[in-house]
């Protein structure tokens, strides 16, 4: 299903509504992601950032609204059209999601083997090229259980890139990484985006890290985009919530204390 899309936008979301049970996750969310850029989607935990990524890939369907990816209305795609669209995407999962029974080489080769008839020699060279680009050609024969968190993330990145996608989605790529691994992943996101002409979307709440590489940021809270712009613009935002998020202040519009009955009354009152 083709639909009108601004020429320089790869993704356009409008009027997105989605709920899980009685909890409303998105309430009329609107955003557009330009081609060729690195876009950060930020927001407090539980605001639905990963859910939004899963809307782009068609793993979740919205209750209402439009999710246009490369001019295609994702929720209305047939199974075969959705799979064709997914071949143009790559996604890096928070826990890397490597296939634990396969070696590093076979993990990266997996999408190629399943989706193409590439001869073995070409496949081998392609996989080694991708592994070289993330610095892990020497780890091709290791098993996922032998990798550190940062190495797993890089193997998953090579796997996500192996079919040369137009769109690369990163779900919390920095969580649990040591400073060296974090620096490597940051560099690879920027490098891959620029060298391969990708469009990258990074879901993260690591404000400092993402500010280094993002061209554009969206801050999501309570089901809507509450701020968008360049990272330096967001730091000077007039919204208290955005400033609290960007500076990591302990208290503010997002309170330190979860709503509770009066403290004194609870301590002194009967149980």
């Amino acid at each position: 299903m083709k639909a009108a899309l601004a020429a320089d936008n790869l993704i356009e979301i409008s009027g997105l509504r989605f709920s899980r049970g009685s909890r409303l996750i998105f309430d009329g969310l609107e955003l557009a992601i330009p081609r060729g850029s690195i876009t950060a989607i930020m927001g407090p935990s539980g605001t639905g950032k990963t859910t939004l990524l899963r809307m782009f890939t068609g793993q979740l369907k919205p209750d209402a609204g439009s999710v246009l990816v490369a001019g295609q209305e994702v929720p209305r795609l047939s199974r075969s059209d959705l799979y064709a669209l997914r071949r143009r995407m790559g996604m890096l999962f928070q826990n890397s999601a490597l296939l634990t029974d396969f070696s590093v080489f076979e993990n990266v080769a997996f999408p190629v083997r399943e989706n193409t008839d590439l001869p073995e020699r070409l496949l081998r060279n392609l996989v080694l090229t991708k592994l070289q680009s993330v610095g892990l050609r020497g780890a091709a024969n290791l098993m996922p259980s032998e990798l550190s968190g940062g190495m797993s993330r890089r193997v998953a990145m090579a796997r996500a890139m192996v079919l040369d996608p137009e769109l690369l989605l990163y779900d919390e790529p920095f969580s649990g990484l040591d400073p060296i691994s974090l620096g490597v992943v940051l560099r690879l996101i920027r490098l891959n985006n620029d060298a391969l002409g990708l469009t990258s979307i990074v879901v993260s709440h690591d404000v400092a890290e993402i500010s280094h590489i993002a061209d554009h940021c969206f801050v999501i809270s309570e089901g809507k985009v509450i701020a968008s712009g360049r990272p330096d613009e967001l730091a000077d935002s007039e919204s208290e919530l955005v400033r609290q998020f960007m500076t990591g202040a302990v208290d503010g519009p997002v309170p330190f204390h979860y709503p509770a009955p009066d403290y004194r009354q609870q301590l002194l009152g009967s149980s």
Partner: peptide, 9 residues
Amino acid sequence: AAMEVMAID
């Protein structure tokens, strides 16, 4: 989930 995103059923 990763397989689904890789267009592998």
